[in-house]
Design a protein around this nucleic acid. Structure first.
Length: 117
DNA sequence: ATTGTGACTTCGG
DNA sequence: GCCGAAGCCACAA
């Protein structure tokens, strides 16, 4: 049998992002942590920027620390993120989202069970 | 090889 | 709130 090629950091980030439930959000840093890559918030940001179009990833559920939309306020992406979040019931005030209410807090044991790594 | 650039985060002022 | 510095590291030049 061939050796299972280890997933790249970006791929692991994508895998976890795919599991964020509707109506919930995470921060870049949290996403990296959940992917087993502590301290790699920047990589999570990069992963969201380079998502393959065909892989319908809920990138809009990923926010900056403290619940802020990280995209430039005048960009189409910023408006799309606001729109998509609101579409699934997340309250958005400008670029702010209340993390106390919408942050995803997965059961770690269950998460581990689901992940392909 | 070195340098600059990020959808980042935390800390100190 | 806003800023700079530091820590992070893949990637392009």
């Amino acid at each position: 049998m061939s050796k299972p090629k280890p997933l790249t950091g970006e791929q692991r980030i994508w895998q976890v992002c795919l599991m964020i439930p509707e109506g919930k959000v995470v921060s870049y840093g949290q996403l990296a942590d959940l992917a087993g890559l502590p301290g790699r918030a920047r990589l999570a940001g990069r992963a969201m920027r380079t998502v393959p179009e065909e892989m319908a990833l809920p990138w809009y559920r990923v926010l900056g620390a403290g619940g802020r939309i990280s995209l430039p306020k005048d960009s189409p992406g910023y408006r799309e993120q606001q729109y998509r979040l609101r579409q699934e019931g997340v309250e958005v005030n400008g670029s702010r989202i209340n993390m106390n209410r919408y942050q995803w807090q997965p059961d770690l044991a269950e998460l581990l069970w689901q992940l392909p790594f």
